[in-house]
Design a protein around this nucleic acid. Sequence first.
DNA 1: TGATAACCGAGACGGTACGTCCTGTCTTCCT
DNA 2: AGGAAGACAGGACGTACCGTCTCGGTTATCA
Lengths: 223, 223, 223, 223
Amino acid sequence: MRRVDGTISATRKPPPACEKTTVVSRTGPRRSESVRLAVLHAADDLLVERGFAALTIEGIAQRAGVAKQTIYRWWKSKVDILLDTLTDDAREALEWRADESRGVEETLTSHLQRVADFFEEPAGQVLLALLGHAQLDSETAASLRAGFLKEQRERDIAGLRDLLARDQDLTFDDRTLDHLVDLLLGPLYYRVLVSGSPIDKELVETTSRLVLALAREPSTRNP
Amino acid sequence: MRRVDGTISATRKPPPACEKTTVVSRTGPRRSESVRLAVLHAADDLLVERGFAALTIEGIAQRAGVAKQTIYRWWKSKVDILLDTLTDDAREALEWRADESRGVEETLTSHLQRVADFFEEPAGQVLLALLGHAQLDSETAASLRAGFLKEQRERDIAGLRDLLARDQDLTFDDRTLDHLVDLLLGPLYYRVLVSGSPIDKELVETTSRLVLALAREPSTRNP
Amino acid sequence: MRRVDGTISATRKPPPACEKTTVVSRTGPRRSESVRLAVLHAADDLLVERGFAALTIEGIAQRAGVAKQTIYRWWKSKVDILLDTLTDDAREALEWRADESRGVEETLTSHLQRVADFFEEPAGQVLLALLGHAQLDSETAASLRAGFLKEQRERDIAGLRDLLARDQDLTFDDRTLDHLVDLLLGPLYYRVLVSGSPIDKELVETTSRLVLALAREPSTRNP
Amino acid sequence: MRRVDGTISATRKPPPACEKTTVVSRTGPRRSESVRLAVLHAADDLLVERGFAALTIEGIAQRAGVAKQTIYRWWKSKVDILLDTLTDDAREALEWRADESRGVEETLTSHLQRVADFFEEPAGQVLLALLGHAQLDSETAASLRAGFLKEQRERDIAGLRDLLARDQDLTFDDRTLDHLVDLLLGPLYYRVLVSGSPIDKELVETTSRLVLALAREPSTRNP
DNA sequence: TGATAACCGAGACGGTACGTCCTGTCTTCCT
DNA sequence: AGGAAGACAGGACGTACCGTCTCGGTTATCA
């Protein structure tokens, strides 16, 4: 996010973006990093405190001690701000940790458990809100899926591929892994998004056991 | 909806009150059924045509040829209206059809396929919008889960129970069925809500095969 | 108001008014006098309690325990109701009392004082409200002037004529009396309507003395 | 209204505050004078065209090509807008013009005639509407009397004092002048507000002659 | 002694305007 | 040039009454 030359790159394209060198004799102050953080934190706090519906650009501006126009200069909507917070906060929480010292089953289970726990954290709330809003607004859906969700799915596929390679010393093609990820994460997201009930340990274990079993079937290995 | 005596039964609770008999000698005009339908249809149409964000009470009122106050008299928000349309339209589309002439696998697969198709229909769009909004507003979440989703889950559990009974002549306890339903529907909802990509036939088949296999394991039968 | 035959005559023309005989075979109940009084009192009370702006047909109906439609059946607006209360209450308060035992000056002064006091009473408040509303709505102005104000002015002219006859044994023509009444009442109404300050005794005395002096001038007597 | 430095002085109190100097370094846009005038003219026009009852904030906004919120930012009601137009338009029409070349009687008569004519003009209609509304709403009454009417009365007292000084080289105390003004203007306002009939020349002449006669009485001079 | 027609309560309905809130754009000034 | 302050056009919100319109229930005559 922070480049060597000290300028900031928003997730969004900085005006029309000069990719290589910013030689342009820039005068006046550059984008203030403190403003950026103040806005992201204000948005995050307000979302958790009051919920998405009560989250307004004006509210964020006031809370962050920033002018409305300043927000519009760098983000094009409140959704855009939240997308920015996601990138900073959620990636780490959902990463796959290869722990060689533990068995494959246990590794998978503990990853799923981490996913389950993530939904309780603020960053998880942000993701849920964005997923919710994506159902209501196709532009949000496009941004979210082209950005965070796409990257996260790549990480999930890579993570699962590595794990299965450790388990059976075999590689799966992408289509198969795609399905396995759906089967793995689907029930968890379903619980959170649809049922709204907490993800219990049993669901985590059943799911991971089932997917592993499926992966080990000969028919899956040779699709 | 229309009872024999000509009075109207709103899907929504008739002013809290009076569980057994409405003794209060009600005089004056009754609720107009035509108004009710005009509003539900207007809301449904506008949602599909223009999306949730562009769905406003004023827009619905205008489209339905109805006064705004009339809407507020019977529904407390646009979400409330959508909840009403759901009850009328979605139940049938998601019901389990016991087709004795076909095998258990095929029955399950075709039910899942019907669920997948449902999301393409207007009523499915309404459900998705409501699920989306439920992530943003806890009151919506509560209404949706206490109403439609609760009933639908009961139907799903009953449907699955009947199917498995036919398959193995065994009964499963509710907790187990709960999990099986999560595993069965989770991947489908995940695809629609998170990935946003259409549900392909392969996912439907894999999922139903997998869940059936799990149900047939001795460890599942005797939990 | 109450006729011999028991039917009621609203100040307003009863439907299209059959002045002489109501031969139309009337069956069913006649207008309820209790309803009429309940409405007039409710309107009066609410006007004094909450002011004209807060006076609504629905409020009057509720206060009077009467259906809105019942009000619309007999009066065509809240102003119409207030006009009705005026006729009942204000006439007496503003009548000229010929007290032979007292001097002309004293009689005139005490009449003006009674006018001044009238504005403090509920009925006076109603008149002020109607005069106010007459500035805003020409229909109100027309009704008020064609009804109460016209009658009152006739009483005022007659009263002044009698008094001056007693004073000088002379008769004045109507044009002159018209002007004298304007000069007599103008300052009082000006105080109440424009200044909003109470009418002090000095104004009452100066005014009556002045008008009497004018009336006694030879130039006035022979215009 | 427009100061040398280009800032605007609303007739209405600038957010309570700062009697002497506005030190608060105000940045950002200032109030748009063109908006202010557009609103005042729209209100004035609509009042004359359609009457007070049909005068709505939304109508004014539309006519002025202005957002409703912009009106609410600067005025708190339609009455507040009319009060503003009064200050701009009525002061001049009601001022006392000392014309040394003419006699005292003639000066007084011509002033009264100007008052009479004023009621026919748009600004006079505004004053009548406000006086009417003041009878219905005590807040309007308070604003009107504390603002325009108070200043106007001061001008009237000063005008009459100067005129009488020219006539008799005597000064009158304020209480006496107060009464004289009531006697002078009362009949005119009574005609307009109560009778609703036009002010004829005779009333103007009689009134001014009468008041002048009273002022010349020794008893008035030495109260 | 019904029949029947009006009165009356209750309140749904299509409307209009209210006053508030937030949006996204803009202008102005300050640093 | 960046940023604060905030005015502005716009549009939806949810509320309050308006005046009209059914509904049933209830009388008080007249057949």
